[in-house]
Write a protein that binds this DNA or RNA. Structure first.
Lengths: 134, 134
DNA sequence: ATATATAGGTACCCCATGGATAGTGATAAT
DNA sequence: ATTATCACTATCCATGGGGTACCTATATAT
C-alpha cells in the first residue's frame, strides 16, 4: 500500500497504463496551462485568445482548444453568422482545474530569480569542472 | 494593467519572451511532474526512481534529473564507491513546488471519471455529426 | 578463469509532435 | 475591384521526446 500514492481513487498516475497518467500527460503542456489560465477571466473568442497568448500559432491554439473541449474542460459555442463568431469558456470542471494551473503560473513568475540564480551557479560549476579536467 | 496577470513580480508568463514563460515550459512535462512528486517522500537513488516511475527510460530519467538539478529543484549527491551510488533529493525550492505538482497529480487521479465521461460524450457527438452529414 | 549481475549512466537513431507559413470561404467596407 | 475580418485548415519542416544498445568497474557465482 503506497499511502501517499493512491488517494482513495483507485488510480495511480505513476502507473504508465493508468488513465490518470494519460490525464497528467494531457495537462503537461504549456499551451494547456496558458489557455486555461486565460479563460479564467471569462468567455473569449479565438482571436482574443490568440492576441493574449503571445506567440501561439493558429494551429496550436485550435489543437489545444479541441483537446480541452473533448475532455470537458472548455465549452465551445458557435454563432452562425458571417464573419464567423465562436466563443470559448471554461466548464465547471475547467474552472476547478484553472485554480491549480494559475497557481503554477504564479509560481513560475515568482520564482524566476531563484531559477536564474540556480542556472548561473550550475553554469559556473560546469566551467569549474572543465578547468579541473584540463 | 492586467490585474490578474502580473502578480507584482514584473513577470508575465503570457509573454513569449518573459523568463517565466520558459519556467512554465520547463514545468510542462509529465516526467518533471512525476519525478518531483516521487522525490517528495525523501531522497532516492536513480534505480529506485526508475522502479517507481513505471515506463520511464534511463535516458528520460537522467535528462529530467539534470534539468531539475540545473534549475535548483533537486540536489544530486555522488558517493565515490563501486558500484556507484548517487542520491537525489528535493531542495527547499523543489519542496515548495512539489506541493503544487502533487495537487495536479491528485486532480488527475480524482477527475478520471469526469474526463472519461466527457470523452465518451465527445465521441458520441462526433458520430452524430457524421450521421447528419450523410 | 570466465561469466554474470549491479548501478548509473552515455551514444545513437527514429519518428511523432510542435511550430511556421500559406491558404480558404463568405461577406462587408473602401 | 480590392482589401479586411474571422476562424480556421493544410502543408511542410525541424526539434526533441523516446527507445535500444552499450559502457565502466567491481563483486559474486560457477
Amino acid at each position: 500500500m503506497d499511502s501517499d500514492n493512491d488517494c482513495g481513487t483507485g488510480y495511480d498516475a505513476f502507473q504508465r497504463t493508468c488513465p490518470s497518467h494519460a490525464v497528467l500527460e494531457m495537462l503537461a503542456s504549456k499551451w494547456v496551462y496558458l489557455v486555461v489560465c486565460a479563460l479564467r477571466r471569462g468567455r473569449m473568442r479565438n482571436g482574443e485568445l490568440a492576441r493574449r497568448l503571445e506567440g501561439i500559432t493558429p494551429k496550436m491554439l485550435t489543437q489545444t482548444l479541441r483537446i480541452l473541449e473533448r475532455d470537458g474542460l472548455v465549452r465551445r459555442e458557435i454563432f452562425p453568422v458571417i464573419p464567423p463568431r465562436v466563443e470559448y469558456e471554461l466548464t465547471e470542471l475547467g474552472q476547478n482545474l484553472a485554480g491549480l494551473l494559475t497557481q503554477i503560473r504564479s509560481w513560475s513568475e515568482e520564482h524566476v530569480p531563484d531559477i536564474k540564480q540556480a542556472r548561473a551557479r550550475a553554469e559556473a560549476n560546469q566551467k569549474a569542472e572543465l578547468q579541473a579536467q584540463a
